[in-house]
Simulated scan of single mutants.
Amino acid sequence: MALNWFTELPSRVVTNFSVLEALFNQHFVVAKTFRKTSIRLMACKQGDQETLGEYIKRFNTEFLEIPNLEDFVAFAALISGVKPR
C-alpha cells in the first residue's frame, strides 16, 4: 500500500526526507485521535460479572467523551446495554 502511494506521488514533490516523512504521516495517520460517536456508546454492554452500578459508571465515562449527544440516544444506548435479568 505504501509503495503504491509512493509511486503515485507527483515527481519532484519529495525534496528531502522531512518532506517524505510529513507526506507519509499525513496520508497514513496511525495515531490519529478520532472523536467518539454514539456508535461507540451503543457497543457499551454490561458484562456478565458486572453489577448494574459498575456498568452505569463505565457507561457515564463513555457518555462524557461524546460531544453533542442527544439524551434520547444516550438513554436508548444505556437501556440496550443492560443485561436482561
Rank of each mutant, 00 (worst) to 15 (best):
residue 69 L to H: 02
residue 58 R to P: 11
residue 58 R to T: 12
residue 35 R to F: 15
residue 17 F to D: 02
residue 18 S to P: 01
residue 75 F to L: 06
residue 62 E to S: 05
residue 69 L to Q: 00
residue 73 V to D: 00
residue 27 H to K: 12
residue 53 G to V: 09
residue 10 P to N: 08
residue 2 A to V: 15
residue 56 I to G: 00
residue 32 K to F: 12
residue 44 C to S: 12
residue 7 T to E: 07
residue 51 T to K: 03
residue 63 F to L: 13
residue 75 F to E: 01
residue 69 L to W: 05
residue 2 A to T: 13
residue 50 E to H: 09
residue 61 T to V: 14
residue 13 V to R: 03
residue 57 K to L: 13
residue 11 S to Q: 11
residue 50 E to Q: 14
residue 56 I to W: 04
residue 50 E to M: 11
residue 55 Y to M: 07
residue 4 N to Y: 09
residue 33 T to G: 03
residue 19 V to I: 14
residue 19 V to M: 07
residue 13 V to Q: 05
residue 61 T to M: 04
residue 65 E to T: 14
residue 41 L to V: 14
residue 75 F to G: 00
residue 51 T to A: 06
residue 58 R to F: 10
residue 76 A to V: 01
residue 45 K to V: 15
residue 12 R to Y: 12
residue 84 P to Y: 08
residue 39 I to C: 07
residue 6 F to G: 02
residue 83 K to C: 03
residue 6 F to Q: 01
residue 79 I to R: 01
residue 76 A to W: 00
residue 33 T to Y: 11
residue 52 L to K: 11
residue 40 R to H: 15
residue 63 F to K: 12
residue 60 N to S: 10
residue 80 S to R: 05
residue 2 A to C: 03
residue 40 R to Y: 14
residue 72 F to E: 01
residue 42 M to C: 14
residue 49 Q to H: 13
residue 73 V to S: 00
residue 76 A to I: 02
residue 49 Q to Y: 13
residue 32 K to I: 12
residue 63 F to W: 10
residue 4 N to C: 04
residue 28 F to A: 08
residue 47 G to P: 10
residue 72 F to V: 04
residue 80 S to K: 04
residue 23 L to W: 06
residue 63 F to P: 00
residue 62 E to I: 15
residue 47 G to H: 13
residue 40 R to E: 15
residue 1 M to D: 08
residue 33 T to R: 09
residue 22 A to V: 10
residue 1 M to A: 09
residue 3 L to M: 08
residue 4 N to S: 08
residue 70 E to S: 07
residue 25 N to V: 06
residue 76 A to N: 04
residue 76 A to Q: 03
residue 73 V to N: 00
residue 74 A to P: 02
residue 51 T to V: 12
residue 72 F to G: 00
residue 5 W to K: 01
residue 50 E to K: 05
residue 26 Q to R: 07
residue 77 A to L: 01
residue 6 F to M: 08
residue 60 N to R: 11
residue 56 I to F: 09
residue 58 R to D: 08
residue 31 A to P: 04
residue 33 T to K: 11
residue 66 I to L: 01
residue 20 L to W: 14
residue 16 N to F: 11
residue 76 A to S: 05
residue 61 T to R: 06
residue 57 K to A: 13
residue 36 K to N: 08
residue 9 L to R: 05
residue 5 W to I: 11
residue 69 L to Y: 04
residue 14 V to G: 02
residue 51 T to P: 11
residue 25 N to G: 07
residue 76 A to Y: 01
residue 62 E to C: 09
residue 29 V to K: 03
residue 70 E to D: 07
residue 50 E to R: 05
residue 36 K to D: 08
residue 42 M to F: 15
residue 28 F to D: 03
residue 59 F to P: 10
residue 11 S to K: 10
residue 38 S to D: 13
residue 38 S to M: 10
residue 24 F to A: 13
residue 45 K to A: 06
residue 53 G to I: 06
residue 76 A to R: 04
residue 43 A to E: 15
residue 46 Q to D: 09
residue 2 A to S: 05
residue 7 T to F: 11
residue 15 T to R: 10
residue 40 R to K: 13
residue 21 E to Q: 12
residue 37 T to L: 07
residue 41 L to W: 14
residue 73 V to F: 00
residue 67 P to W: 02
